[in-house]
Design a binder for these strands. Sequence first.
RNA 1: GCGCGGUUAGCUCAGUGGUAGAGCAUUACCUUGACACGGUAGGGGUCACAGGUUCGAACCCUGUAUCGCGCACCA
Length: 1030
Amino acid sequence: MNEISKAYEPQSVEDKWYDFWLKQGCFTANEKSAKPAYSIVIPPPNVTGMLHMGHVLNNTIQDILSRKARMDGKEVLWLPGTDHAGIATQMMVEKQLKKEEKKSRHDLGREEFLKRVWAWKEKHGDIIINQLKKLGCSCDWTRERFTMDEEYSRCVQKVFVELYKQGLIYRGKRMVNWCPASQTALSDEEVEMKPQRGFMYHFRVEAVEADGSPVKGVSGRPLTPALSPKGSEGEKSSATNATASPASTPQVNVAPIAGSKTINPPASGSLSHSGGEGQGEGAVQKGGPEIDSQGRIWLTIATTRPETIPGDTAVAVNPKDPRYAHLIGKHIIRPLPVELPHEQKLIPIIGDEHVDFEFGTGVLKVTPAHDKADFDIGTRHKLPLIEVINADGSMSDLAGADLRGLDRFKARKVAVEKLRELEMLVEEKPYENNVGFSQRADVPIEPRLSEQWFLKYPAVETSKACVTEGRMKFHPDRWAKVYDHWLTNIQDWCISRQLWWGHRIPVWTKKASAASPDFSALQTQLNGIKQSGALIHMNLYTPHAKKEGATNVLQQDAQENYFIRLDVAVDPTEEKIISMLEQHGFTQDTDVLDTWFSSWLWPFATMGWPESTETLKKFYPTTDLVTGPDIIFFWVARMIMAGYEFMGTPQFGLPDAMPFQNVYFTGIIRDKQGRKMSKTLGNSPDPLVLISQYGADALRFGTMRSAPLGQDVLFDEKDVELGRNFCNKLWNACRFRQMQGGEVQGEIDPQLLTADDKWILLKLDAAIREVSIALNEYKFSEATAALYRFFWNEYCDWYVEASKATLPRGGDSLNSENVKLETDSTIQQFNDSTARKANTLAVIDFVLSHTIRMFHPFLPFITEELWHAMAYSTDMPENQGGKTIMFAPWPMPFDDDFKNHYGLENTQLEATNAKYDLVKQGRDLRRAGNIQAAKKVKYVFKPASPLSPHDAEVIKLLLNAEALEVDVHYAPPKGTPSVNLSLGELFLPLEGLIDVAAEKIRLTKEVEKDQAEIAKVEQKLANPNFTQKV
RNA sequence: GCGCGGUUAGCUCAGUGGUAGAGCAUUACCUUGACACGGUAGGGGUCACAGGUUCGAACCCUGUAUCGCGCACCA
């Protein structure tokens, strides 16, 4: 047994053992093993990412679960890998390209650019993997996967073709979330709503007849003045605001218009909103058309996006709105672009239920090309689309001469100025609304009509049921509600991305005009190939055919010409078919798939799917998934659906195809102020730096101790420091044992067990139970806290100190000179007990070897080191702890046989607790008497019932007393401090210890000081002018 | 708007009906046989607020306030 150093030095230990584990293949899962399986798939980090605290939390938990399962005798597969992370990685490489070569990806071309990304991946892809290794993660690295591996890519393509065949994947022209920065469509999940401070603009337009002539015969309230072109901007708005909503203005009379039919306004009683503070009609009737001196009718429209006015193709009001309903069918003159001829500025006023007449002015400008709701209105009313914003967020030519080419935000300002010049701007007031942002690029998204691929989710109902019915458990289970809600309101998934880095959509397409020759010959040929088993599926789109499931496939191009299209989805490895298609003029879709369209296959695509491999048979469904709740929709829900869809087929013979049995949602790591860790804030510590400063075990322990189930974690480096201190304590406790020498793990003789021995054994038993239960319930912070308490407070603070009573220094025989015992024979008995010493060491070894094993999942490195240094490995079977602690059996709570054999009963705890309580109170006597800790004192104990010599020695030691006199007849001098407890009465005779006069002075001074303080505070409080400083 | 979570010591948080807990910070003393990354003792709480249930409430119920998160959003 080598002497171990005074302080634990993690650096010299960690690499050594990690290499050892790797060399010995300790992490490698054997799919042929007879042991019961335990499996986890790692949430694959971004291949070019860096380890952050979220990873530390997440992967430490997975490692704890894996290591615990190994100790439980399970065959463990923790399957690691990385994600290609389409947008993030592409953006990173593009950024570098721009910085170093001042080029865009288009300058390089697709092929060359992809070469660069692969090179980047090769260079940086290992970083995060190595960081995980530093943390101690026991992943089976022989099975590491990457979402763009050849095999994995084939899974993605197969899945695409399969779903396409089922009609679940379709191409459609839809409003999508468009990111102008990365210039790609995004899924709804990639859009983050953020409150933004902006302005609500009210502008006025003239209502006219369809031929452009003024509307006649409509009364209205008088026109409010517009904001003058030269007016100062901000301050005036509030003044105009007052005039803009005159509650006293008489209501608009809905007079029949000559030549048009009469519209009867609904009775005011039918208007649900008309009650409330408005006292009837006034509240409802505010706003409405205004009439100018020449009798022209004006409508005021509220908008936050005046730059889209050139894209407006209608103005909508609610047909039930009495203020406006009579104007439906009239037109308005759209103010922008100004240069258009009058007749091209006319857009209709339409009635649509979507319009909320309580909001804004009750008049909605409809921009079908740039707003999702407006697009729907446009579809209902067959409105034309005018695209005024380009893909990059700049204004198009259709936006007019004033706005053309401007960035959308700059255009907003210019549009406002134009309205002001035209004296149409009525109001401009600060306004806060939610704006969708691209999560990746952090710029506002632009709703944009574009042709994309969509997926109608498969297996939705089954996926819902498995969680609601409890076959798959969420921890904490409140996430089940969130999951269920999302699945209930699920929308089709936009899966195409206008990027280059990712899985290219395996569809070859040819378009032809409706008049061109048909594709039937080719279809027959392809069908023949299909019969031979090739992965291929085709869809023919004709102007009038509507494929089942392929809803909303518009068979018109931008010019409204009908066309025919043949889409052929085919496995890209079918080179013959592809070259045939290309000869026919087919081209592959240029888009790639959303990254999550590959990650949703992770639990089985990493295990050899679509073959029914041994690995799948052994390890699917996986046991646990550990992830953050922020990707519950992105990843977890989709994986469940994919699991049911693709693992539910008979060949896998699974009773339930769900991908995991338990999902553990971690908290989110935040900084001390509660902010999310982010690169821009720079508040995220580098875990590798922490590891080098404190050790990986310390980082793990600190993180676990402060991460309760389901709560966010405020990270504080102090927690890591605590972890380091703890490791050092563990180290030194072992060092203390080692310094005692003697036989390692000798046999425990039940006859020689002291009360303290029994006490610690019972406490150990309780700790084993507590930790095991906590781990089974995924309560890692509770498990950690229990271990901490047991080891530090119970074992070190009490047991080790008490054990010194039987472990004399330097191996001398017990020196009990200062303990006055009842009889000489008991002294003899006590003194001679070298067997007792050996027995104490045996108990220590027993406790330590169990404790170290319980700590191993949390602190893999230091426990492995100690396991060997303490030689606890030596009498274990080779594959159960002999070689490594990783496979040592997890401690079991004591059974009845064990307890009977050692005479352990829970009732014994009480007496020892009483003894320790006596000690605590005895120590306090010292402080009460102001006696320095270093000063040797003598206590006198008057026992209530006979005290064993061993207990007397323990009490003396723990009191740090020079002597403990046990005397049943002790008569203390008057004023001797004492405590009276169940075990007896303890005295601290003061003679010679304190200078009574000096002590009197000290105490008097203290009292005076306190009184002065009281007087000061009272004086303050009595002062009526006294206020607390804030 | 709907849903979820939080509110307990100076800070970060445990605590599912029976005497309010931990770590850090803080005060005093101590380098006493492993550990100063340590030891001993202490100070510090109206458990957000208001009702209710109960012999008994931090805990259960109702409501309020407040902070945070998610979803959906109206120009």
